[in-house]
Design a protein around this nucleic acid. Structure first.
Lengths: 353, 353
DNA sequence: ATGAAAGCGCTAACAC
DNA sequence: GTGTTAGCGCTTTCAT
């Protein structure tokens, strides 16, 4: 084993020389751009194989003005909802021969702006972006969207800024509330997240709208913090005195925290109080009791995002008329688990009065 | 808002023209390669600012033979131990102005080989790699290490293949066993992972070595599966009949599954049996009871990996003598939580007989 | 169907 | 200290 060594990279010239033709011909054979004589093509491929030729993607990128890379910008890879999304995106893109430049923003809009700039400097062909904040990310996102195709994922960034694909948060929250109503819960409360992130806003608005049907006072039983386990724990102390029979949480982390604290307080979940989450992160199935939650269709989200990128025409020669942004909303799925089993222990809603 | 548009990128030439000097001078000012007259420098910077010039990193890369990107190749981003590592690596690298090309291998050596090749084609300056498998990843890793600086992370890949940095698994397992012994446990069993991944091997070897001191029969109470929650659940059914007073797991996922199944079986954790994990993933603190585990020093791992990359000289002109590989082992830390509290409920080892 | 030649935007000799 | 020039490795006219 020796140290890595530039063994004089094999270039197109080397292949051309070995195959006895010009570099242009080799390029055409390998890229399949234009017809080439069968005999020549064979010789070229043989030479390329024999020499172990690998095209220099950097040179190719410079010349063809396309790097074959897309930037993936996200708030915090440690948010347990993102890894599976990243995985699906990476696979979808790699399947198209594109590589992924990853940027983690540390949940900070300023860092986000820096990362976006760095990716643009590297001439990514496109950007997949989960904005840190609906409002504070807007300028940087809009500027980037003016330069490359850009698709917003999971969270929005104000109207008309860019194409976006996300789960239908309102529909998800409605599923939760319907389920709770059907299993006899009548005093829900909501533990949400403050701020302008679209998931936070949409989920709390949907709760307020849907819960009112269950109980006119339900919308008022709302406390707001952030999307964390710690907040879930703290929130329980704020709302438990109201004796809700269901704690509807804005995501699974909050729900996990709430569950933990309720257990500490000796509350009976789900007998006395149901707890629900949102996202269906891996942790949700592991909680005790396992968490009823709303599953985001992660693979579809990724596929749809990749599709939007592919269909966004490369660039207009002239600024041109404003192109309408496309917004895709995917249907979520309710995953019923132990944390919301009817109080009587049965699982059929009809057995509950 | 209009569609993204190539507004005729500003190039070095544009800046040179605006500043009234040559492209070389502009390059020198911006790169700081060589001294430039104060007056000229000012003019250049002003022009660059005014035009909103951003260097084309692709062109720069082609010319300077350095892309400023490093490839990060990992088995499965959805493994909950990796996101925090990815985060630290991304930050460490970005701080040096390098971008991260991410590749997820789907836990498959063949995919891994493909991804490595794709990254090399893109001329990454270096590779950070968590191999899928100690043995089956070896060829691809060795080949890659011959072309660019490469640092193995978290898992090894056979001796002498490449520089590596990982936690000291043996030391971590020893900490666990000492702790169990000190808190009065005498019949440990081990739920590990089969296969040749170095973490799997080192942890099970360390258990066998350390547990024998506790109980000569302990090493035999070992069952092997994979690093998953499902295996943790299944393993309990295989070992519970032996009535161990401690279930030592090879990672936190296994431990979470074991904990869940023990609870289902009505076992008292930690009263009747202690459970321990390894890695300290976010989930560990959330389990009930919270999981005693071995924390990997993630930030240090990342920093050390970045340091090794930086110090690996770029390339030798001639294959040269075999360069010794460097292996860094970082000390782990035991995190004691509820799942291993002494049977009497106290937390001081001395209160236990 | 093939080759010659012109760059993509930048850096790095090499002159002055 | 600054300009001129020659490419990095490739794709793509434009000839033939």
């Amino acid at each position: 084993m020796e140290g890595h060594t530039v063994v004089a990279e094999v270039t197109l010239r080397d292949v051309a020389r070995a195959a006895g033709c010009s570099v242009a011909t080799v390029s055409r054979v390998l890229a399949g751009t234009r017809p080439v004589g069968a005999e020549t093509a064979r010789a070229v491929r043989a030479a390329a194989d024999r020499l172990g030729y690998r095209p220099n993607e950097v040179a190719r990128a410079l010349r063809s003005r396309s790097t074959g890379t897309v930037g993936l910008v996200l708030p915090q890879i440690t948010n347990p909802f993102f890894p599976s999304l990243v995985r699906e995106l990476e696979h979808a893109l790699h399947a198209e021969g594109r590589a992924v430049l990853l940027a983690d923003c540390d949940d900070d809009p300023a860092t986000e702006a820096t990362r976006i700039a760095a990716l643009l400097d590297r001439r990514v062909d496109a950007l997949l972006l989960i904005p840190v904040d609906e409002r504070r990310s807007r300028d940087a996102v809009a500027a980037a969207a003016a330069r490359v195709p850009l698709v917003l994922l999971d969270r929005g960034c104000g109207p008309g800024v860019a194409d976006s694909v996300a789960v239908d948060n309102a529909a998800g929250m409605a599923l939760v509330l319907e389920h709770l109503a059907a299993t006899g819960r009548r005093r829900p409360c909501f533990v949400g997240a403050a701020g302008t992130a679209s998931a936070a806003v949409e989920r709390r608005v949907a709760y307020a709208a849907g819960a009112a049907a269950l109980d006119p006072a339900a919308p008022q039983r709302t406390v707001l913090g952030d999307f964390s386990v710690e907040w879930g724990r703290a929130a329980v102390d704020r709302i438990w005195s109201a004796r809700p029979d269901a704690v509807v949480c804005a995501n699974d982390l909050i729900a996990a925290g709430a569950l933990q604290r309720l257990r500490q307080l000796g509350a009976d979940v789900p007998g006395e109080v149901a707890v629900t989450g949102f996202d269906d992160v891996p942790l949700a199935g592991l909680a005790d009791p396992a968490l009823t939650t709303v599953r985001q269709p992660v693979a579809e989200l990724a596929a749809e995002a990749a599709r939007l990128l592919a269909h966004r025409p490369a660039a207009a020669p002239i600024p041109g008329p404003r192109r309408p942004v496309r917004t895709v909303r995917l249907a979520p799925e309710l995953v019923v688990r132990g944390s919301s089993a009817p109080a009587d222990g049965g699982s059929d809603p009809r057995t509950t009065p």
